[in-house]
Amino acid sequence: MTTGHANARAPIAWGLVWGAIQAASPLGLWWLDAATVYALSLALIASVYIGFAVADGRPTVVAVETTIAGAFVVVAAAGVTGSAWLLVLGLIGHGFKDLWQHRTHYVANTRWWPPFCLTVDWLAATIIAIEIAAGLQLHR
């Protein structure tokens, strides 16, 4: 973002909506383990920056963002059969990646995306952590 916090209000508000939708997404895909649905979401969210990097056009940025997205895919895959806390950590970590992007503007033309995605990531991570702490099984 190039100006003050007022410009972040809409992306953050929409991030809260989509974060709640992401946290509830296993209800719509009831035939899958919740952990699988959350892992798919983490992989999808992480890969969005590849599209931004391609639009940016710098080969180094594409390579870096692809590598970072790949790391989040590995964490997501491990969370499918491993500890569901990996999914929480993956979302928190991706939120920090969004914060870094917001501060550095490493990938060009992502003004609204980092505050939106950080809000989605951290709200979903919080809700999933509460589910785990409350004893909800994310694996069948």
Rank of each mutant, 00 (worst) to 15 (best):
V48R: 00
D121Y: 00
I21G: 02
A8H: 07
A133G: 04
T81C: 02
G51P: 04
I132G: 03
P59C: 02
A71C: 12
M1F: 12
A78K: 03
I128C: 07
F72S: 05
V75Y: 01
A76Q: 00
I128D: 03
G90E: 06
V17S: 09
A124H: 01
T119P: 08
P115N: 10
L136H: 12
T67K: 00
L87N: 07
A46S: 13
H105K: 06
R140Y: 13
G57I: 07
L89V: 14
D98L: 10
T3Q: 10
D56Q: 03
K97H: 15
H5Q: 07
H5S: 07
R9Y: 07
H5T: 12
T36S: 11
W112P: 01
F116D: 04
I127H: 05
A134V: 10
A84W: 09
I128V: 11
A53H: 03
G19E: 03
I68Q: 04
R58D: 15
N109A: 14
V64Q: 05
W122Y: 11
A13R: 09
I50V: 12
A84E: 10
I92T: 09
A84R: 02
A78Y: 12
A10Y: 10
K97Q: 15
Y38V: 03
L99W: 13
T2S: 14
A71M: 11
T126S: 15
V48D: 01
G90D: 07
L87W: 01
V48E: 01
A108T: 05
L138A: 07
C117N: 04
L29T: 09
S41M: 13
R103S: 03
L138K: 00
L40W: 12
V48W: 01
D121T: 00
A23K: 07
G51R: 01
L123Q: 10
L91R: 02
L42S: 05
V120C: 06
A53R: 05
V64R: 10
V37H: 02
V17N: 06
R58E: 15
A8W: 08
I21T: 04
W112E: 15
W113G: 00
T66G: 03
G90N: 08
R58F: 05
E131P: 02
L32P: 00
P115G: 12
Y49F: 09
W112A: 15
L87F: 04
V88I: 12
I68K: 04
W85C: 09
Q137C: 04
I127V: 15
G51H: 05
A23R: 10
A35P: 03
G93W: 09
L91I: 00
V80C: 15
L16N: 08
S83Y: 03
V54D: 04
A84Q: 02
D98F: 05
Q137W: 02
H102N: 13
V37S: 03
L86Y: 06
V61L: 07
I128K: 01
W18Y: 15
L86D: 02
N7M: 06
A43N: 07
L123K: 06
P11E: 11
V73G: 06
R58L: 09
Q101E: 14
P114Q: 12
L136D: 10
G95R: 03
A53Y: 02
A6W: 08
I68Y: 08
G28H: 11
R140W: 11
A34S: 11
V61H: 12
T2P: 06
Y38E: 05
